[in-house]
Amino acid sequence: MVFFSFKRRSHFVYKKLRDPRSKIRLLYLHAGRADEPICCSLRTPSLGSLPQYEAVSYTWGDSTAHHPIQINGKQFDTLRNVYYALKELRHPVGIAILWIDAICIDQQNLEEKRHQILLMGDIYQRASRVIVWLAEPRADLDLAVGLLNELKAQHDEGTYTVRSLLAIHRPRLRSPEWIALRNLLDHPWWSRIWTLQEVVLARNIVVRLGQHVVPWEHLGIMATSSVLASQTLEMLTMRAGEKLHSDRGVPQGCYAIGLIEGMRYRIRNGVPYSLVTLLGESWDRKAADPRDHIFGLSALAPDIKELDLYPNYTTPVGKAFTDTVHKILLRYGTYILFSHAGRGYDR
């Protein structure tokens, strides 16, 4: 095993992509043990010649907290959440090939960023699988995963009704395993605008919870099973004295899973979305940059190019929104967006 030191290393500088409309960067994450530095390299294949890779869906978290990694032999300061994701996702032997936006896109190059955002649909669709990485692993993850496995087994048996489900789980309502599941479904990942297209377009999804790899289907049954969906919603509702990340009083994941499953079903059946429909369905999702409420849906809305709404982070926020509404009015002749204005706020 080769050990690396970050002392006196020069900082990594991005090389411009020859054509950011057809080429991407892939991160080659080298093997290492938990106590070893993270060492990577970047390669720039075209979309037509991609190796097998995995795409990571996660939340950026605190953008001011950085940790050093090594890229192409040089130091690169990356986000705290990215750093810990790479620590968990690297293999003890062999190379993991990943696409992760904070590193694979030069975030300071707005022109590159504009073109790469338009490729994200292809990037997530072509990945061998999308890994949903939920930051901040906790001691109760084992309990949450155990309960998910139990619910999936009961679902597959097909033997329960509302009455039997309540008989099994109602007495355990505030048990550690149900609290652990509520905490999992209350993670900020479930509320972010970008994560929507990342999993809706994926061929294969797994959720990484510490050392656990959970198939998406174990979570999806909360939406596809009407019995489980209704009872889970009731059982996870916030009680007096409890706090949740979501302001709905119910973990955001309870709603997000249903939304994601519905969108995946629609797209699999060849029913395209319009931007105006997507804006209505995703109005309550969150983004650090308000413009991402539009740009973060670009991979799901085929008409975004027809509307000439290309991602442009030099456009002031107010103008980005007014231009979007104006173009939707001209194209579709609908005032439906005005019914969403101020939803969730004092109108």
Rank of each mutant, 00 (worst) to 15 (best):
V2R: 11
V2N: 09
F3A: 14
F4I: 13
S5F: 07
S10P: 04
H11Q: 12
F12A: 05
V13F: 09
Y14N: 08
L17E: 05
R21A: 15
S22T: 13
L27Q: 04
H30E: 13
H30P: 03
G32D: 00
A34S: 08
A34D: 08
D35I: 06
E36D: 06
P37I: 04
I38G: 01
L42D: 07
R43I: 13
G48P: 08
A55K: 01
S57Y: 00
S57L: 01
Y58C: 04
W60Q: 02
D62A: 07
H66V: 15
Q70L: 15
Q75Y: 14
N81T: 15
Y83L: 11
A85C: 06
A85I: 03
L86A: 07
K87G: 11
P92R: 12
A96R: 11
I97A: 10
I100V: 05
Q108K: 13
L110K: 10
E111Q: 13
E111R: 14
E112D: 06
K113F: 03
H115V: 14
H115S: 14
Q116V: 06
Q116E: 04
I117R: 06
M120R: 06
D122A: 14
Y124T: 07
A127K: 02
R129I: 05
I131E: 09
I131W: 06
A135F: 02
P137E: 05
D142G: 13
G146K: 05
E150W: 01
E150Y: 05
Y160T: 15
L166Y: 00
I168S: 10
H169F: 07
L173D: 03
R174G: 07
S175V: 01
W178L: 10
W178E: 11
N183Q: 12
L184K: 08
L185A: 08
D186G: 09
H187W: 13
H187L: 14
P188N: 07
P188K: 06
S191A: 11
S191G: 09
S191W: 04
S191P: 06
S191H: 11
S191L: 09
T195C: 14
V199I: 12
L209T: 09
G210F: 05
H212E: 15
H212V: 13
V214T: 15
E217L: 15
L228R: 02
Q231T: 03
L233I: 13
R239T: 12
K243H: 12
G249K: 03
V250P: 00
P251S: 08
E261L: 11
M263T: 00
N269Q: 07
G270H: 03
L275K: 01
L278N: 00
L279Q: 00
S282H: 07
D284G: 09
D289P: 02
P290R: 01
H293S: 12
H293T: 11
S298D: 00
S298T: 00
A299S: 03
A301K: 01
A301F: 00
I304C: 10
D308N: 13
T314F: 14
T315I: 15
T315R: 12
T315P: 07
P316R: 02
D323K: 10
D323V: 09
T324K: 04
V325E: 06
I336P: 05
I336R: 13
A341G: 06
G342A: 02
Y345G: 11
